[in-house]
Nucleic acid binder design. Structure first.
Lengths: 117, 117
DNA sequence: GTCTTGAATTCCTCTAGAGGAATATATAGG
DNA sequence: CCTATATATTCCTCTAGAGGAATTCAAGAC
């Protein structure tokens, strides 16, 4: 249900990440609390929360005229797992270093990756 | 250097995620290989690779007239860590379930979150 | 009932950025 | 030299979506 694709789309927006951060500290928050804490305006917060809800990143609970939002592990974990699938890339310390330890003893100081003016 | 913010912005686009996936399988690929494998056109691939490079998600190595791209752990790990910081949210199985195990034995069948028509 | 407050929704505008076509810049090979 | 190939870049267009203002809807409080 919580696909990493939808989650990463949703998280690809700074203000939504801010909202997730706020909910992380507070465990549960109403829209107005998030409005106050984020500096965004109420309609924007509601819209972002809608997107986050669709992505299974938050859940809502109706409480009188308040809506209490909280983080939802499902979606967050999906994204976490997506990145975890790349774990081998950084766990083998081969980053920008692999040529050096390879069997090729070429003494040529390769122009140090990344800089190709 | 590799901030999660930039990474999450970069990854918030489906075709860039596809390119990352392709590079994951192939360890290293030229632009034309990525063009062939992704179905995107060459300029688009180059542009996406530029974004991914800025986000420290890939590195380039000049090889004659080819540019060999490969994944870079730095950026990926930054994003992984960002999601990992939320780990407690799903590790405590409190998702959509916490009210049930809370000290409140209220038998009221709360309208099952998420559905507030 | 009315008034107020919390939240969602609608409509509009505007900008970021994704894609396409064409061009520019290398580098390799003849 | 000239040509072909690999990649980057420029310019243009067009759409998705973020933000603002106003409106609507719902739930207290009175």
């Amino acid at each position: 249900m919580a696909d990493a694709d939808g989650v990463l789309d949703a998280v690809g927006e700074p203000n939504r990440r801010r909202l997730l951060g706020l909910l992380h500290h507070q465990r549960e928050a109403t829209v107005s609390e998030l409005v106050a804490a984020s500096g965004l305006r109420q309609p924007q917060v509601s819209k972002h929360l809608k997107v986050l809800t669709r992505a299974a990143l938050v859940s809502v609970r109706a409480d009188g005229r308040y809506r209490r939002y909280r983080l939802r592990g499902e979606g967050l974990q999906a994204a976490h797992d997506w990145f975890a699938s790349f774990e081998n890339v950084w766990q083998a310390r081969f980053d920008t270093l692999d040529e050096l330890v390879s069997a090729d003893p070429d003494p040529d100081p390769e122009p140090t990756e990344e800089q190709i003016p």
